[in-house]
Design a protein around this nucleic acid. Structure first.
Lengths: 263, 263
DNA sequence: CGCTTAGTTGAGTTCGTTCAACGACTGTGG
DNA sequence: CCACAGTCGTTGAACGAACTCAACTAAGCG
């Protein structure tokens, strides 16, 4: 690992300490329900989830929320903010696996398989709902519709990973970058995490680690997209100016938005 | 798409016709339970699964079992044989996403999200158990333990995709090849699909399309592993001679085998 | 005002690609 | 039984995409 990255990594782990638990948002007033993107709950379901919820967790940009190898007792849902999942090799090479936005489940793998096989870091300041892992069996026993939702979310994550794998494995650098930005823009839009022309809160290092490219080459590739006026760098992030253009370069079709469940 | 591959693709689709449905294996005599790898069922669960099962499907090597874009009414479990999931870009570039072995679920994404987002092809002759997609909600309603298993399997698949993505994104050609072969050997062993020193039934083209490399470079890379006596080509497949050596080259640790559920 | 973070750029090198052939093996029809 | 076609693995040569190294700029912050 290059020293710079090692230091950044250690800092982020220490940063985890800054995380605190406190309950603030009531489930019946969950801010996510207002998006047409999410399905509606029955009062019964809301009651269960409310009782299932243990508290809230806030994390600052750069904080590690979950660390590979940990046996966390918790399961989370993103309430606000951006994060990402990643794995690193022994020598520090990092691969970002996917991004986390409001409504996403965090730590399901750990809850089901025992140990976390990837780490999770906050990209902006985040708020997460905290659930007790050990209550998950009860959810499956007494709330089939919610269990179905959990599985739906897992299948959706799998679908996205399939697409990323296709991208990293078979697309050129320019296509990959285009796909990623179109994808992120599309996801952000559907949870209104981007109002109009906000920037996606990532650095070129994140993009490089997602695409499996070096920073230098990522920079040169993004430059080309910027020259074509498809993207622009501002506000510590990447603004997407022409989603259709990007999707076109990548040969990518966004799925029709389906009604997604969440917890 | 190069003509050869286009022809191979069309042939495989036509080959789908050769697939027939007939019920032969009773669930209570399911051949998979004898492996310590799978968890045991209660009589109640077996009864439900038996009634859930619609028949069996056999496919020859090269046959397409599911095609991207299809709205299949079915969900499958692999009973015997090898297969793989893949996606292709418009111009024919193919990315293999994962391999299917006995006990794996096929078509869950399609069942939950509506439409298949990837294709599935048989690598050897295969037998699959056929289930009706529309019975899935009943499974969630009345058999929480099985619903939990389905989710477990989905999480496991996600975990594997995470590892593949790390590999394709960040490992060198030699490391990638080593990881893939160690991984496949490990998986095959755990369902006794390889007896001792059988070969993994794939071609170098499959490996290339999994690793995101060209076939020529894949060949040269595999050659190096063969020279180190870690693998050998025989019986139309790849024999792994030194799993530990491969895992070592890749810097990969196989998970401790956990008791896996299946349907 | 110095320090850090993040984006930019050029030069030289390496890894992986494409093109093009060839050899070994298998199955098939005359 | 042989000829022939098809599949799959192998190899060399030339090329190009992406990498590393190294430096520099711009912006933000205590």
């Amino acid at each position: 690992m290059e020293p710079r990255r090692l230091i950044a990594f250690l800092t982020s782990v220490i940063g985890e300490q800054s995380v605190q638990a406190k309950k603030t948002t009531a489930c019946r007033a969950c801010p996510l329900v207002k998006f047409s993107h999410f399905r509606k709950f029955t009062p019964d379901e809301v009651a269960f989830v409310a009782q299932f919820k243990r508290g809230e967790l806030s994390a600052e940009r750069g904080a590690t929320i979950l660390l590979e190898g940990a046996h966390s007792a918790h399961l989370y849902t993103v309430l606000a903010g951006w994060g990402f999942r990643y794995k690193i090799l022994d020598d520090g090479r990092r691969q970002i696996l996917n991004y986390l936005l409001p409504g996403d489940l965090v730590g399901l793998q750990g809850s089901l398989l025992g140990e976390m096989q990837h780490s999770v870091e906050a990209l902006t300041s985040m708020t997460l709902c905290v659930f007790e892992r050990e209550n998950l069996p009860e959810l499956f026993r007494n709330h089939a519709s919610l269990a179905y939702d959990v599985t739906w979310i897992a299948a959706q994550e799998e679908r996205i990973l399939d697409e990323h794998l296709l991208s990293v494995g078979r697309r050129s650098a320019l296509e990959r970058a285009s796909y990623l930005l179109a994808f992120l823009h599309h996801r952000a839009k559907s949870v209104a995490e981007l109002n109009g022309h906000d920037a996606i809160p990532i650095t070129q290092q994140h993009i490089a680690d997602t695409l499996g490219l070096s920073i230098v080459h990522t920079n040169k590739t993004l430059r080309k997209l910027a020259e074509r006026k498809m993207i622009a760098w501002r506000d510590r992030g990447c603004a997407v100016l022409d989603v259709d253009g990007l999707a076109d370069v990548a040969g990518w079709d966004a799925e029709l938005p389906s009604l997604r469940p969440f917890i």
